[in-house]
Nucleic acid binder design. Sequence first.
DNA 1: CAGAATTTGTGTATGCCGTATACCGTTTGT
DNA 2: ACAAACGGTATACGGCATACACAAATTCTG
Lengths: 281, 281
Amino acid sequence: MSGEATPPRPLPPGLELLWGRRAAGGRGPRPGLSVDAIVTTAIGLADAEGLEAVSMARVARALGFTTMSLYRHIANKDELLQLMWNASALGVETLELRGESWRERLRCWALVQREMIDRHPWITQMPLAAPPLAPNSMIFVELGLAAFDDTDLPDVEKLRVIGLLSSYTLSEARMAHDAARAAAAAAGSAANDDGPPAAANGDHAGDIHDAGGGSPPPPAWTYETLLRELVDAERFPRLHAIAWSGGIGDDPSGFDERDEFLLGVDTILDGVAAMIARHAR
Amino acid sequence: MSGEATPPRPLPPGLELLWGRRAAGGRGPRPGLSVDAIVTTAIGLADAEGLEAVSMARVARALGFTTMSLYRHIANKDELLQLMWNASALGVETLELRGESWRERLRCWALVQREMIDRHPWITQMPLAAPPLAPNSMIFVELGLAAFDDTDLPDVEKLRVIGLLSSYTLSEARMAHDAARAAAAAAGSAANDDGPPAAANGDHAGDIHDAGGGSPPPPAWTYETLLRELVDAERFPRLHAIAWSGGIGDDPSGFDERDEFLLGVDTILDGVAAMIARHAR
DNA sequence: CAGAATTTGTGTATGCCGTATACCGTTTGT
DNA sequence: ACAAACGGTATACGGCATACACAAATTCTG
């Protein structure tokens, strides 16, 4: 709120690296490690084993350095996560939205975002705090704003729609990947025996969740069977009906998650159309 | 896929507690600790200091027990989080949606959810995995479905809208609370001196983010000033214009976050209206 | 009523995590 | 030649979730 002179240099910590301003001074020994290398191997780790596999120690070991060496290039783990998030959107600079109307372009915008997330599912596990400040986020927002160029929507509304769309995209992707991970884990623990044996307890195993008899575990729960077990017809009449009518879990039609997602996008865009019409009047 | 007989008992671990089926056997000493007490104090801790303050050790200490005693009542921390999430929606059973039309009821539904989150902001920090299976989540979904009772929308679409609305609600709440927390942290670190001193480094302070001269830190960044610093007019023409036109950060009008939120909800509902109209035809 | 069975809470230990701090060798500007 | 700056390492600390073994309390069974 004070002053109109643009502040000269010192960005808040963590942003300088993101926006690429680093002195690159000359005096010490030539570094064997670089921010790029760190971020790249961290992303590789996350791609392969999920975000929880990314620890300072693991990243450093994968690079053949000590844990603490990373801190010569990165302030802390949070900064690393920010850098990963930014680097995961590598293609954005050269991206162009296809479509003649705002509607086609926005749809394309959402889809591109969804595809970026699908390429790096750990994005949905990131503890994303506060509004986006990474350069690639900015580029992406700018791109979204450009989709509105043929409309008269006020800027605030454009931003609201952008936020709405990307929050939908993120949460839809999160659900899809969580489900996929759960399914993979269930399949894995059923097939292999080296996975976590149900829920390891010490000498007090049977109390909280009795591990069943000696019989093989009942054929593993799916979301649908669970729903049918839990939801009674009196308290949950509508959910009960849905659970017993099939078509909840894996849909047999060729209707995949991507189409599901686009249906949601289209619903939002219908709302945006009304918004634009209202403002044109 | 297999069998039509409802499976008899053994729910997957973690769900039994949520759905209240516990043997309550008789033989041991009378417990001085209960699941309820644990969950309650954990929620108290989270309300007061955020979700990161909830550790097994802290909860146990607050109760006057040892850390490991908790594990006699709860399988692991994740289960505790699930229980907290479920308990945070305490009022849902006695909840009724006001409104004559599906639209009013859905709007009310979203608002109620938002208010529940605002009462326990740590909900937005929860690593929520997979579709909701807690009883209170179910009740809430059932309530959302009931809002559609005067429409002909297929069930799948109803569920999609429910998901869309609540993902929007959650992410909007997350942004609001993250911003609030950041603002509080900035104000706190400016006023107090017992907070983390900027970014502590060892003998190598000045390299990554040089802490400025001895002068007092430049008046602290706001989102708007940051945007103005980072976003240049060539690469980000639209964002640049927005950043310099004011009205981004704290809006001076009496237009608070709740109204902002409801505007987004209304946009979604416009889309839903189109959806319903399409299906009625 | 005697012991067996079962359950609650405790103490201790393990292996991860992020990171503060002190140190040493290398490079470079003066 | 020397001081300053820098890159990497070793060590250590406090916190975390949780495995495991044990003691005391209670109740069921004979």
